[in-house]
């Protein structure tokens, strides 16, 4: 399972790299190029000469079609200069002055991906740590909620039910928004300074409602005879739960809790509403500033890697807990 995911991730990256790193040096440059002089482009006849600040000369050809001029430089020389861009809105004989020519250089897909990696990895860390921390905190909270839901005590049971009703019944997006922006409006003491902390609290509260249902269902799926045998042996309700029922319920909780982890991993992208840079937010930021969809490929690969880690950990756990069956 994990191997499969890693392979898929690797294949996606390879595909992206190979499809984007072609040998052609033509492309379209669409930004405002009229900036202070660093590089000169001289058009004459059907050839164009680029002069860099250092005095490097590079001669190529161009074709004009309507408002668009496409320039092609010989690959070997262009590579030396790192040039592979095309002008927009130019006409023959125009002289265009560039601020510098680094922006003229279009790095290969692999180079781009590598250059985005630090930002993506940083953002992945936010995504991953937020997922793991909030699910773990939610697990603790949800055990109490589940036991509350199973309780015979009217108040405990209904408080737990109300909690689950509220947090499962309202959008997570609004809960995050409310905890970060809404709480301070109620009372300034409720202000949460850190966006990360606000997100952590919102996720924990939300996930706990779902996991409480998972745990309750797992506990209820244990044969009633187990509780009866425990009682007949003199175990208290709490002891029976702790020593007999919950250890058996663990195994049944594992697949749905793994599922929860994977879903939360992706739900963390909702933190963009409070301006936290998770993997999805970072990817969209890179996408819009570089105007490329290429960034989705490493981002998706990172999600797959994180998912496969969860899956393999939980598979192993399930195997280990199944030893008595």
């Amino acid at each position: 399972m994990r191997k499969a995911a890693v392979v898929i991730a690797a294949v996606l990256i390879m595909l992206a790299v190979s499809s984007c790193a072609s040998g052609s040096l033509s492309g379209l440059y669409e930004e405002d190029v009229l900036r202070p002089a660093r590089v000169k482009l001289d058009f004459s006849g059907d050839s164009v000469t680029l002069t860099s600040l250092k005095g490097d000369l590079l001669t190529g050809t161009f074709t004009a079609s309507g408002d668009v001029v496409e320039i092609t430089f010989p690959p070997a020389e262009a590579h030396a200069l790192g040039l592979r861009q095309v002008m927009n809105g130019l006409r023959s004989g125009d002289k265009i002055i560039f601020e510098d020519y680094t922006f003229l250089r279009m790095p290969s897909a692999l180079e781009k991906i590598i250059s985005w990696m630090p930002a993506l990895l940083n953002a992945s860390w936010i995504t991953l740590s937020l997922t793991v921390l909030s699910v773990c905190a939610a697990l603790i909270l949800s055990v109490f909620l589940a036991l509350g839901k199973l309780s015979k005590n009217f108040i405990t049971r209904n408080l737990s039910n109300a909690y689950v009703f509220f947090f499962r019944g309202t959008p997570l997006l609004m809960q995050i928004f409310f905890i970060y922006y809404g709480l301070p409006l109620i009372h300034s003491a409720l202000t949460i300074q850190s966006r990360y902390m606000a997100a952590f609290i919102a996720f924990t509260l939300n996930i706990a409602a779902y996991v409480a249902e998972i745990i309750r269902a797992a506990i209820q799926s244990i044969d009633k005879g187990q509780m009866e045998a425990s009682k007949a042996l003199g175990l208290s309700y709490a002891q029976a739960m702790r020593l007999v029922i919950i250890p058996q319920a663990y195994r049944r909780m594992i697949p749905p809790i793994c599922n929860e982890f994977v879903m939360v991993l992706k739900d963390t992208s909702l933190v963009f509403v409070i301006g936290l840079m998770d993997l999805t937010s970072q990817t969209r930021k890179i996408q819009s500033s570089n105007n490329t969809t290429l960034v989705f490929i490493p981002a998706m690969a990172l999600y797959l890697v994180m998912t496969s880690v969860f899956t393999s950990v939980f598979n192993r756990l399930e195997e280990r807990l199944s030893r008595y069956e």
């Binding site: 044969d223 005879g225 187990q226 009866e228 045998a229 007949a232 007999v244 250890p247 058996q248 069956e325």
Partner: peptide, 9 residues
């Protein structure tokens, strides 16, 4: 018990 109710874990 009729159905043993042993602790399977």
């Amino acid at each position: 018990f009729q159905r043993f109710n042993l602790f399977p874990h």
